[in-house]
Amino acid sequence: MNAQQTTTNQLPEKKYIRSHEPIFWGLFGAGGMLTAFLTPVMVLVTGLLIPLGLIDAEHLSYEKLHQFVSSWYGAPIVLVLVALPLWHTLHRIFHSLHDLGIKRGRDWQQVICYGFAFAVSVFVFTLLLQMLSL
């Protein structure tokens, strides 16, 4: 503080409130990336290449997939593949409700949207944990 500033009354500093959006935006972005890159591949493999017989369906048999999902490397991959696109989707739905002009109960909309993504993520996590065979 220098002498000049004490002669005038300084305006009170405006209060700024930090948003927690970076967390949800981060999950949204990561989920969006995954969805954009992997969905077309999944559709190609399961919707075209396997039915056309270009990939042997045996590679994606129940036993094979079960083995993958219950392995230490498969479980986290599946968790990420399910959870991130889910957070992406519910974030999008939450913001679309605002875009549609549904103003009532924004906090409840938030709790329901992100709560759902959180609950399903926890559910998938527990399920995978139970399946894990080390």
Binding site: Y16, I17, S19, E21, D99
Partner: peptide, 14 residues
Amino acid sequence: MKIVNQEEGVWSCT
């Protein structure tokens, strides 16, 4: 950044 970090800063943008 205090202005940016608010809901009505960048986070209102979709």
